Computed example of a mutant assay.
Amino acid sequence: MSIITFVGAGQMASALSFPATENGHEVRLVGTHLDREIIETAEASGFHPTLKRQLPNEGIKYYQIEDVELALDGTNAVLCGVSSFGVDWFCEKILPLIPDSVPLLLVTKGMIALADGFMITYPDYFISKLPDGKKLSINAIGGPCTSYELADKDHSAVAFCGTDIEILRRFKKLFETSYYHISLSTDVVGVECAVALKNAYALGVSLAVGLAIGTDGSGKEHYNSQAALFGQSVKEMKHLLEIINGGAENIIYGAGDLYVTIFGGRTRKIGTLLGRGFSFEKAMGELEGITLESIVIATRTACCVRRLAKRGMLQLSDFPLLMHVDNIINNGAAVDIPWTSFETEKY
């Protein structure tokens, strides 16, 4: 049996308690300062109020953030369960507490934009934030997997990525089950970029849902337009992977994650509202209190693409959907899908 300390009691981290405890490991679920109610409710009843599932009856111990050092005592692995909005908090408050011998696995998906136009993965960003002299093995999860369906034990296929294949194999043994299938990759840039980009493009595909439903909500959802935007999304994502020297095979994780994201959740909601004609401000108002990583990654990616275009490393015309999504979010543009920009001629 191993002890795995989960810091962050959000939906995905909490869903991962199912395969971990089924494999006989002890999960120590630590809530951040934003998770107090989750920890209180789960400890009292076993029910997770945002995942809306009963957590495993055995194998979980619950901790508030003040007891994080106790939860880390004797642990064999740590899982970072915060969203992209909590990354800097985790780097400042938690990274210094993790022993160098204990590997870290991130559920957080996203990239950090640098001033030179490039983006770095969260594992690389975490490494850059380590205190002087401290060394940690920092790894991440990518791929199409929603927290609800993982908790319901639907078959899910993901990738664990990191620089040390032996540590990845250790993580695989901790979490793999008959329904949670794990591939391993040392191409951290490729895996992380592929799954981060899906947030921006899922918003783009969801615009078609809103356009079909219409302003008054009486329309019928169509699939030709969604499929067309899905294909354009995969094309642009694959091109970005090539530019950053990520393995093209990683597009399977980005495309799979894109597929599952456009069927529901926060990103579909914001894209649908925008497609129905809501202004960005009004759409965000409708979703008040909901964190939207799609907005962050779309803005960061578009900024990165523009900077690279200025350096002559790519053409903005190769990313018409991304540029349109960015214009909607940051410039108040109305939804007007640039369909003709997607057309090509091949000889």
Rank of each mutant, 00 (worst) to 15 (best):
V335A: 07
G312K: 07
G247D: 15
K269T: 13
Y223R: 14
E192S: 09
L241P: 06
Q232A: 10
G265F: 01
S341C: 10
G10H: 04
L241W: 03
T163K: 15
F160L: 05
C91M: 12
L241E: 03
N327E: 14
L308G: 03
K269L: 15
E37S: 11
C303N: 14
I243R: 08
V234G: 02
L287S: 08
T299F: 12
G247L: 13
Q64H: 14
R169H: 14
T163F: 14
G190C: 08
G86F: 01
L241I: 06
S183D: 14
G74V: 04
F47H: 04
S225C: 08
D100I: 13
I270R: 08
I112C: 07
L29G: 01
F90A: 05
P99R: 09
V30W: 00
W339P: 10
G277P: 06
G277R: 05
S83F: 04
C161K: 04
S137K: 09
T50P: 12
E37C: 06
T299V: 11
F319T: 06
S183L: 11
W339G: 13
Y253F: 09
D67E: 11
S17W: 00
E345A: 14
I98A: 02
H33M: 15
A20N: 05
H324L: 06
A333L: 07
I127E: 14
F47N: 06
I38R: 08
A71W: 00
L168P: 04
G289I: 01
R53N: 09
T186G: 06
T21Y: 00
A20T: 05
V305F: 05
N23S: 01
G210V: 09
C193R: 13
L203W: 09
L203K: 09
L105N: 01
I141T: 07
A42D: 00
T177S: 03
K173E: 14
K310N: 06
L174C: 04
L314Q: 04
Q64E: 12
T41S: 07
E249V: 11
V191D: 08
A20P: 07
A333F: 08
Y259P: 12
R276L: 10
M237C: 03
V189R: 08
G275R: 02
D257N: 02
Q226R: 11
E293Y: 01
